[in-house]
Write a protein that binds this DNA or RNA. Structure first.
Lengths: 219, 219
DNA sequence: CCTCCAACTTTTGTATACAAAACTCTTGTT
DNA sequence: AACAAGAGTTTTGTATACAAAAGTTGGAGG
């Protein structure tokens, strides 16, 4: 694995896991020493993060970790709804029913996996990720898929703000199952509606459990 | 201006203007010498282009200019419709009517500008760009705006394939005026419909005037 | 004649040294 | 005391040298 890839992955994880808080300035020498790479691959990593919007160049003062305000979350979900509704509708038109029937089946059985432990939560995230990937593949629009990928990195950061307890995860599984069912049934409008419902509930959950988190400058 | 910015702008223009054809391999030493910069800023430029999708890394064989197939154009416009419909609807909800009334007025007078010369075409593109910018600003969703910006670089490349004659430009001005009117009238559904109509006509024009362009490997 | 392996060549990836620009702190003046 | 100008310091931007990896070509063996 390339040094720039390792630096990128490490920084991205540090940011999405809120170990590097918004406002933190990422000095090139400091971070390159911390991650054990030279400045060249580190700069490449910072460039990627900035292109994704996880960091921003503060005009000569180095790159800083971007904040995620309440307003950002609203905007994020506004775009997410636009993109994922379309992806779900396209998947319903173009997808293979068998794939989504199988996913629906697994999602209906998901509550058995969700036991409140980290293992259970991780197992569910993996399953939800498989549904996302299946929808992207079925929509078969590489530009749409890329736009959604660009959003996801922000969404995992937001997800870390919310307390994903067993109750919310169980409800989310049912919502996901409804999406899979609509796609398997080749019903684009229903797939859009199910997606809207899921995202609305997801956003409500985030905003309800979102304790006014510190987003001020670090250090 | 930084050397990496110059290299990026030069390469991006060379690609969108079809001076660097799809399949062309962009060797680092070759391009850095051609553009008069060292490899370091050139690599940064290539990284940006690859993130945007104008180039792709062909596994160890360097980065190559991506192709734009007929299928790509369909996918591009599919995403474009999704994003711009939403942006127009949000602009109709949130925008300032006066701004769009003024734009509508200018767009209705645009046929006078369009005389078939490059100057006339450029003047119209500038006006259409102002409408796009006004919609982005009125939608006031930075993530949506970023997604649309990511598309535009591909769209200018596609536009270069189409013969934008005076007749098409005049028709496009009327379509744009309809969008501006709908937003000024604070009618989101009408703004979406006008956007759909414009994009449909725009896509049809591209596909009709699109002589099967060479997209094979260069040299 | 085809295939596989190895040395060679080319190209990318990384480290470091140097240049330039931006920020900061001091100092002098109003 | 407040502000501006300038030297110093820190940080980013660029160039180049070196290392590593991938591709290619030539030759030997089947």
């Amino acid at each position: 694995m390339r040094a720039s890839d390792r630096a990128y992955a490490a920084l991205r994880d540090d940011i999405t896991e809120w170990r590097l808080l918004p406002g933190t300035v990422l000095g090139e020498v400091e971070q390159s020493q911390r991650l054990g790479v030279s400045r060249t691959p580190l700069r490449e990593a910072l460039g990627r993060l900035t292109a994704e919007g996880l960091t921003t160049t503060a005009g000569g003062r180095g790159v800083v970790v971007t904040a995620v305000s309440l307003e950002d979350i609203d905007e994020l979900f506004e775009l997410r709804e636009t993109l994922e509704r379309r992806a779900a509708a396209l998947a319903a038109e173009r997808g293979d029913s068998a794939v989504f029937l199988q996913l629906q089946k697994e999602l209906l059985e998901a509550p058995a996996l969700i036991d409140g432990t980290d293992t259970g939560r991780h197992a569910y995230y993996e399953l939800a990720g498989r549904l996302d990937a299946a929808i992207d593949a079925a929509a078969s629009n590489s530009y749409l898929a890329q736009a959604i990928r660009g959003l996801r990195v922000h969404l995992v950061r937001v997800r870390r703000l919310a307390a994903d307890d067993a109750r919310r995860l169980t409800a989310a599984a049912a919502e996901h199952a409804a999406i899979a069912e609509a796609i398997a049934g080749r019903n684009p409008r229903l797939a859009e509606a199910a997606t809207t419902l899921h995202l609305h509930r997801s956003l409500s959950h985030v905003k309800n459990t979102h304790t006014p988190h510190d987003k001020e400058h670090h250090g």
